[in-house]
């Protein structure tokens, strides 16, 4: 299999590293009573003349918006998201995929490369024989709303079935921290552990390294980032952590 490059997913437009006083707030906590200068942003509601948090999260002021970045939560599918799905069921016309969301995703054969109309031999019907229950796929959400199950596709760059590697799961709101500002964290991880990483929006991360030691080091590092996602100066601390662990475990010496 050709070496695959990971794609850096959409960076969160709110950068928590830049804000020094990251106050932790809880649901119902009043964030501001100054409605002339501030507007309620993400993760907040307006109640009477107050801006109130709805999550346990970090209070971040950006321009004149007060936002709350949640620290835990579920994944909400949006069109265009790349996610890792696991086939949980199949029938002659579609596969059902667990995408770590409220609803399972639906993958139709016509949305896979092999069964596309232009590639299919004349007169042959699309079938769901290619994939089995338990297969791991990287898919893209093409349609998602609150009335239908999200529809998925495997046609696109980096998409399709994974034959090797490992998958780990972290809370979806912490994904932007794994990527870092302009991909700084993910580049650091890639360079220092020599692993391929594919980070997806639903909280699942696909990794593949040269050997098991590097993979284990990377997994431990990702869980450390997840645990310390709400602290500042994370990139430097992670760099130090990897160097320490490498000398402890005797890797790359």
């Amino acid at each position: 299999m050709a070496v695959e490059e990971e794609e850096i997913e959409g960076d969160d437009d709110i950068d928590i590293d830049q804000i020094k006083d990251k106050q932790i707030v809880v649901p119902g906590e009043v964030l501001s009573e100054d409605l002339e200068n501030f507007n309620p942003g993400r993760g907040t509601i307006r109640k009477d003349d107050k801006i109130v948090s709805v999550y346990v999260g970090l209070k971040v002021i950006r321009k004149n918006f007060i936002n709350v970045i949640p620290l835990r939560g579920i994944y909400n599918p949006k069109p265009g998201d790349k996610v890792i799905g696991i086939v949980i069921d199949k029938n002659p016309v579609k596969w059902k995929l667990d995408i770590n969301a409220k609803y399972f995703g639906i993958l139709k054969p016509s949305n896979t490369l092999k069964n596309q109309k232009s590639r299919r031999p004349r007169g042959e019907q699309p079938s769901t024989e290619d994939l089995d229950v338990g297969d791991v796929l990287i898919v893209k959400v093409i349609q998602a709303d609150r009335l239908h199950h999200p529809e998925l596709t495997t046609v696109g760059k980096f998409l399709g079935k994974r034959h090797s590697g490992r998958i780990i799961e972290i809370p979806p709101p912490k994904i932007p921290r794994i990527i870092g500002r302009k991909g700084s964290m993910i580049n650091l991880l890639k360079k220092m552990t020599k692993c391929n990483i594919f980070v997806t929006q639903n909280g699942r991360i696909w990794i593949q390294g040269d050997d098991i030691e590097h993979e284990c080091l990377l997994i431990d590092t990702i869980y450390k980032i997840e645990n310390e996602a709400h602290t500042s100066g994370l990139t430097d601390r992670i760099k130090e952590f990897i160097l320490n662990e490498k000398s402890k475990r005797g890797i790359d010496q």
Binding site: L71, G73, P171
Partner: peptide, 11 residues
Amino acid sequence: LADAGIPMRSL
């Protein structure tokens, strides 16, 4: 409920 990251008006 708050720990699960479910949006809440208050506790």
